[in-house]
Design a protein around this nucleic acid. Structure first.
Lengths: 227, 227
DNA sequence: TCAGCATTCAAACGTTCGTTTGAAACCAAT
DNA sequence: ATTGGTTTCAAACGAACGTTTGAATGCTGA
């Protein structure tokens, strides 16, 4: 069942998706790279879309399992006490960065993944939503417990910003060179740098938001929506 | 010269690029949306690639001029003294966020741009490199002056992470919904949130990096860089 | 040895893409 | 009214795409 060709196709597709993007990668490029016949993709996967999904699922499922395992380990250790934010960040982002440092395809994949959260393609988004549901729920709960002083909406934004930083840390090394010559060969250094940055952002002083309803509607009092 | 059709095509292309991505947007979609003939793109722009470049250049040039103007204003005010990091962040990221809040097409464009730094397409990267050269140079210099205690390489990484957070702040509102229901309708709030996060990350304690050259070359002490 | 299934392969399918073409329509200046 | 240059238009081009087909080949158990 798990034929050699199947795996060669998955590997080739992963590599080419990273280099050229999803749309611009053709089945002919993939099968040539995999040294397989053009029809092999439709034989083994059914369609290009199904192949794409398989490429993601293969590693993403494993990645999120690792994340949950890391979080569970910290939680078991803490015996019901809230975790330190650094531990939660480590469990979510650290695992990802470490996977990105793995040269056995993990690196390739993470670059692809980092670019995919903002991918507009419908079916990719649907797929990611399913695949992330559990891990998001677990980490949200852990963070809320660890940071009771941070409003939940504020935290969700910060989590989102952190995802952006992670995405660029992993996938944006090309864009990075816009900034000048830079060494991205040391994954441990990248890990340390990103963790510092993320914790710094996560624990930053809360912004003093202008209270919206007042600014918009009032001098005469009439609340537009509850704060 | 600046015909009506030309502008309608630019606007339509911008909208569709955001919704479907560069590759997946066809000239037939664009010309239909712009209520123009299919051949109009090649007549007015020469090719799809040239149209793409025009879409970006139209707003990106202006955006980076705004950034430089904002920075120059702060620098004039400071009379040679280093700026506060917050001011520099404001000049670079604040201007972008504010443009993203502009509903006259700016919002649309910024979502597109945010997704483009990591775009693998060759000619887009080339183009961005040119378009960003000056603004990058100016802001690097300002930051280095304002943060003499932060090693330059460390700072470049942090700048890169900040770009990631900005990108997600602007373009990733779809991905954001993975995290749960969230209100992204208030640009002022987003601005305040992002600024807090960025400053927090920028000013985070430096990571204690394992000193690589020592591990590789020496045992006898040899500092890699000055703190 | 041979039947039976899984896999590979070359070729072709119908679509859609970006681009080109040449005529039609428009529009100001003579 | 006629010209000359600009813009629009319908139609078609060749190329490349994902997919399908049916025969050839490989492998396994009876």
């Amino acid at each position: 069942m798990e034929t050699d060709t199947r795996i060669r196709i998955l590997d080739a597709a992963e590599r080419l998706f990273v280099m050229h993007g999803l749309d611009a990668t053709t089945l002919r490029m993939i099968t040539a790279e995999a040294q397989a016949n053009l029809a092999a993709v439709n034989y083994h996967f059914g369609s290009k879309e199904a192949l794409t999904e398989a490429v993601f699922r293969r590693r993403l499922t494993w990645l999120n399992e690792q994340r949950i395992a890391a979080l569970s380990a910290f939680e078991a250790e803490a015996k019901g006490q809230p975790l330190k934010p650094r531990q939660i960040v480590e469990a979510f982002f650290g695992v990802a960065i470490r996977m990105a440092a793995d040269h056995n395809g993990g690196q390739t994949f993470m670059r692809l993944l980092g670019r995919t959260y903002t991918e507009p393609t419908e079916f990719v988004r649907k797929f990611l939503a399913e695949e992330y549901a559990e891990v998001i729920a677990r980490f949200k709960a852990a963070f809320f417990k660890a940071l009771p002083d941070v409003p939940q909406e504020e935290f969700l934004w910060r989590f989102h910003f952190m995802m952006g930083a992670l995405s660029y840390a992993i996938s944006g090394t090309e864009a990075l060179r816009l900034l000048g010559p830079i060494d991205d060969s040391d994954p441990e250094a990248l890990y340390a740098r990103l963790m510092s940055f993320l914790i710094g952002g996560l624990r930053a002083p809360l912004p003093d938001l202008v209270v919206k309803p007042v600014a918009k509607t009032a001098r005469k009092p009439r609340a537009k929506r509850a704060a």
